[in-house]
């Protein structure tokens, strides 16, 4: 009797095929084993609890007549708050960068400081594998985290509200989740770039955090000052006022945090039809109502492009610096 041996590709060998798979596996395992990951997980769970509490208590404080008139009930879970704590969307917008920075700030320099980088690069792997593996592992971890958080919030909301989300709402929630992940990947790339530039892990952490602080606090103040100086002091027509308003808004859009917030608002609030100022002329004759998902998506096109473009620029810069560097032992 002939025995025929059939070798099935096991799931492990499928992922672990080749050195690149092994590297991603190792990076992800490193993240999952670290204390840092547990801390982040704890922080995100707290976020989820806090914002859910805020959203649900704001629902219960509204009179039934208000509630009956409310549209997109389920979606509000993510964007509403009773004022005691920020809403889920704001929390995530705040913690997302922190998550990205925490996952990337020591990507390259810790390898260098441990003396493992030169050993790694003397193996038969392409040099960009190192960078790709670091980024993809961090991206995978944050994708899993954000998706599970979204599912937990939705599930809890479903239990608490008893109203299932409409297809439109499900799509919007999915879009919001994907948007958040794209936003986090921007910060991962920034952190990896700093980890290439700085030899010290503390310097790269501080560097990325200060960029984040600059954009979340000081950038808008700066634009405010600039706008005040540029503002026309004399007679102003309505069109001029709107144009000036839009100009200031465009300045604000150099801030990735602002881009993310705009996109989030449009996705989570279907009634938002414009991000900028409109003249009376432009809005005359419109009926207040919600936009379909496709239209909202169309509106955040520029914001998404901006976020993706800056992500790619950061990645390319890191790539350029890393590929050209001469790696010596520590």
């Amino acid at each position: 009797m002939n025995t025929i041996k059939i070798s099935l590709p096991s799931s492990r060998s499928a992922l672990g095929a080749g050195p690149f798979g092994a590297m991603i596996q190792k990076e992800m395992a490193d993240h999952l084993r670290s204390w840092r990951f547990l801390l982040l997980l704890g922080l995100l769970v707290l976020t989820c609890l806090g914002s859910m509490y805020a959203a649900l208590s704001s629902f219960s404080s509204l009179p039934p007549s208000e509630l009956a008139k409310m549209e997109f009930f389920f979606l509000k879970l993510f964007s509403i708050s009773d004022g005691s704590l920020p809403s889920y969307a704001i929390f995530i917008g705040f913690l997302g960068p922190l998550l990205g920075i925490a996952l990337g700030f020591d990507a390259i320099n810790s390898e260098h400081n441990n003396g493992t980088l030169s050993r790694l690069l003397s193996q038969p792997i392409y040099r960009d594998y190192v960078l790709h593996a670091k980024f993809l592992a961090a991206l995978a971890i944050s994708t899993i985290l954000i998706f599970s958080l979204t599912i937990v919030v939705s599930g809890w909301g479903l239990l608490a509200l008893g109203i299932p989300p409409s297809a439109d709402e499900v799509l919007r929630i999915l879009m919001f989740t994907l948007l958040t992940i794209a936003y986090i990947s921007l910060w991962i790339n920034l952190a990896i770039l700093f980890s290439i530039v700085f030899r010290q892990t503390s310097a790269s952490a501080l560097g990325s955090l200060s960029v984040w602080l600059f954009f979340s606090v000081f950038f808008n103040m700066l634009i405010d000052v600039v706008a005040k100086h540029l503002a026309p002091k004399q007679f102003l027509s309505e069109a001029q006022a709107v144009a000036f308003q839009n100009f200031v808004l465009n300045l604000l859009r150099f801030n990735p945090i602002h881009l993310f917030n705009e996109a989030t608002n449009i996705i989570l609030m279907p009634s938002v039809r414009s991000t900028g100022a409109l003249t009376m002329e432009q809005i005359s004759g419109t009926l207040p109502g919600a936009l379909p998902v496709g239209q909202s998506l169309l509106m955040i096109g520029p914001q998404l492009t901006g976020l993706f473009a800056s992500t790619i620029v950061l990645f390319a810069l890191g790539y350029f610096l890393f590929m050209r560097r001469e790696v010596r032992s520590r």
């Binding site: 490193d30 493992t116 038969p124």
Partner: peptide, 19 residues
Amino acid sequence: LEVKRRVGYLPEDVGFYDN
């Protein structure tokens, strides 16, 4: 890549993944 497949290199003060 081909060179690194055939040549083993032990850097000065080599490091390992400590965890």
